[in-house]
Design a binder for these strands. Structure first.
Length: 305
DNA sequence: AACACTTACAACCGCCGATAG
DNA sequence: TCTATCGGCGGTTGTAAGTGT
């Protein structure tokens, strides 16, 4: 065999295109449990029909807990412009100066906004007024319906993804997504992570969940195995939502090594914004601390709230 | 309302350097 | 020294969402 480079994987056997929430969850779960020592073998071990590179990219650019999302601040944009002047298209180098930002994101922002601005800067000595106007542009469009975000609020010493001896980053900036959780976070400093989970009608997603072992084994049993607590603080018309919700609990307990500290913790609560959530403590072996899980429906109505 | 065009960004592709055998 | 493999990087593409006509 010559020096010709073998493809990183069998392209005919891997899925391409956008990641589904189910795939995201699988990847997050796997990396939380086992880390990502070998990207090439990870997809197989995690049960993902993706190539290792795709998993790595998805994790680094999107799922990593310390990745900062939302629009760039004026300072960040100025930093990028300055660094680009000295470094050129060395996006990873530029990204290393902007904690929480990925090279891919910086590259995109450069190509879509900053390149033009830099040209204007060159030609017209950088009109600060225009710059400020552009800064107020609407934030990047989050795909809220297909997003799983782990927001590390107060990271304990942990085993999660801190490569190269990275220091735990500050809490991610308040994006439109993160704002869902802010009220909860501020109420409990002991919560270490907020994991936001879409509760949507993504067929693939729920089919995957339904096929997971904990649920498979329940197929012959009625749904009320997750016995809906009528005394919960949700309305009675929430039965369906709460059943799904309890499925989630069961799944998370099994997959992420979570456990409720008391039965009361398993009862979902609503915050001031009407967001459903529940608090659970991770088992000691994971050492991730206490988490607050939030679920948001595609629209509040779908939960009858 | 329907279509065309533009924008934003997630994801893919292929190359490169480092490393192990 | 050569070769195979891997992670990482930068360029590019595909497409959903937004906007204009």
């Amino acid at each position: 065999m010559g020096r010709g480079r073998a493809p990183c994987c069998d392209k005919s056997k891997v899925k391409k295109g956008p990641w589904s929430p189910a795939e995201d969850l699988r990847l997050i779960t796997f990396i939380q449990k086992h880390g990502h020592g070998n990207w090439r073998s990870l997809p197989k071990q995690a049960g993902l029909l993706r190539c290792g590179k795709s998993c790595r990219l998805r994790w680094i650019n999107y799922l990593r807990p310390d990745v900062k999302r939302g629009h760039f601040t004026l300072e960040e944009e100025e930093t990028i412009i300055k660094l680009h002047q000295s470094l050129g298209n060395r996006w990873s180098k530029i990204a290393s100066s902007l904690p929480g930002r990925t090279d891919n994101e910086i590259k995109n922002v450069w190509n879509t906004h900053l390149k033009k601005r830099a040209l204007v800067h060159k030609d017209a000595n950088y009109d600060k007024v225009e710059l400020t106007k552009e800064f107020s542009r609407t934030s990047s469009s989050f795909s809220t319906s297909s997003f799983i975000n782990m927001e590390v609020l107060e990271k304990k010493e942990n085993t999660l993804t801190m490569e190269n001896g990275d220091e735990p980053k500050e809490a991610p900036s308040s994006s439109s997504m993160s704002s869902h959780s802010s009220s909860n976070c501020s109420n409990s400093n002991q919560v270490d992570q907020v994991i936001e989970i879409p509760l949507e009608s993504d067929i693939d997603f729920w089919e995957m969940l339904d096929n997971l072992d904990p649920f498979k084994s329940n197929e012959s049993q009625p749904h009320d195995q997750f016995e809906v607590s009528k005394s919960s603080n949700l309305g009675e018309e929430d039965d369906h939502g709460e059943i799904e919700y309890r499925k989630w609990l069961k799944y998370l307990e099994n997959e992420l090594g979570l456990e409720a500290t008391s039965e009361g913790d398993k009862n979902p609560t609503k915050d001031a914004d009407g967001q459903l959530g529940f608090e659970m403590t991770l088992r000691p072996e994971n050492d991730y601390g206490k988490c607050y899980f939030q679920m948001w429906p595609s629209s509040p109505q779908s939960f009858g709230i």
